[in-house]
Design a protein around this nucleic acid. Structure first.
Lengths: 217, 217
DNA sequence: GTCTATATGGAGATAGAC
DNA sequence: GTCTATCTCCATATAGAC
């Protein structure tokens, strides 16, 4: 454990104040002035540590990834079964982001890959690829047709993003609808992966792979 | 054709100036001052006709719907074949929105159903339902299992929204990737609808219907 | 009813003193 | 490293001319 300098301290305090405010009041409604006040520094101080409001969100992404990595590793170790593994990955993420559902909402606004905060953009590529790797690991031990294998982790990642998006805006109590939707769709997804190898479905599988290749460019 | 009063004239001029600027510079980057200047009125003039910047976008939606309705009717009349009809519907929309791809981009930002500009929200419900009705009409004459029928128009609408979202951010020349993706996925979708009736797929179909019901609440 | 001119209040960001 | 003072820009509001 590195000793945290006073500077690290202040930076962390600003970040945590910001996330707290984003959570409570939303991203757009939170001003840099609010953040500075909550962290006990002057406005300029906040800008000394983060060059912009966006940069704070990026720092939040980075921290989330660092926090999540070991939890995701652990989730994968809990079982060899694909369904259970995918379920465990999702559980870890939803639990982690639960207090920040609202913040994710304002961020999901950035679908444009050219926006720095977009989950599909360049600035977040490393985090994204890191995340996709966990789906690759989850598939270890599961039989998947050769032509599908290179694409499946990314497809599962996208599926996961869809569920998370649904979850963000799910107004049902404790997001029960998302949980029901996830259980049912996951069973379907795993079933389809299992069935994807049978000869009868070969033409269908090829169509899907072709589709994915087209979409990915 | 009603005679346009001077007031209607001005309103239309402001709307068209706004859309033009949104298109060229994006929604967020365009200020009400820009809009007013481009339309040749003072700032207050713009606010006299539109109570907010958002209201201008809503007016754009409304106008788009009015313009599109007859074109979509016509598109449906062009064929009895489901694939061709769905293709024709998409063609009409992409052609219409082509000059405003960028504007749609900034709007797709509003996934939150509570945001007034969200395509999933209450404020846009009438436009949305109107649009879904065209998918219902497109299905007339196509055999669809009874349990699936009530949900299929909405599912197709959602599929269409996905393609349009992809199109918005498609940086390939003339959005060729989107067009390829659409051709291929449409063939798949139509094929699945055709196959959905065969007894072997009944369990799968029931899972999907169950899924849709869960998602819709 | 239509529009101009001007005001308000708040945002993100920065320069330069300490 | 941190603060104060200040800048620039914007959505929106309003008073009142025509």
């Amino acid at each position: 454990m590195p000793v945290r300098s006073k500077s690290d301290e202040t930076r962390a305090r600003i970040l945590s104040a910001a996330i707290d405010l984003f959570r409570r009041n939303g991203f757009a409604q939170t001003t840099m002035r609010d953040i500075a006040a909550e962290a006990g520094v002057a406005l300029g101080g906040a800008y000394y540590y983060f060059e912009s409001k966006d940069a704070i969100v990026l720092a939040f992404y980075d921290q989330a990834q660092q926090d999540l990595d070991p939890l995701l590793e652990q989730a994968l170790a809990s079982s060899k079964d694909l369904r259970k593994r995918l379920h465990a990955l999702m559980d870890v993420k939803l639990r982690y982001f639960e207090p920040n559902r609202r913040l994710l909402g304002t961020l999901s606004a950035y679908a444009d890959p050219e926006h720095p905060l977009s989950p599909f953009g360049e600035r977040t590529a490393a985090t994204r690829e890191n995340d996709i790797r966990f789906f690759e690991l989850a598939l270890a031990g599961t039989k998947v047709p050769k032509d599908l294998m290179p694409h499946l982790p990314r497809m599962l990642w996208l599926y996961q993003m869809g569920i998370i998006l649904f979850w963000i805006y799910d107004r049902s109590a404790e997001q029960r609808r998302t949980h029901a939707l996830f259980e049912k769709s996951l069973a379907l997804v795993v079933q389809l992966i299992r069935l994807s190898g049978i000869p009868l479905l070969r033409p269908l599988r090829r169509m899907v792979v072709d589709l994915v290749v087209t979409a990915a460019g």
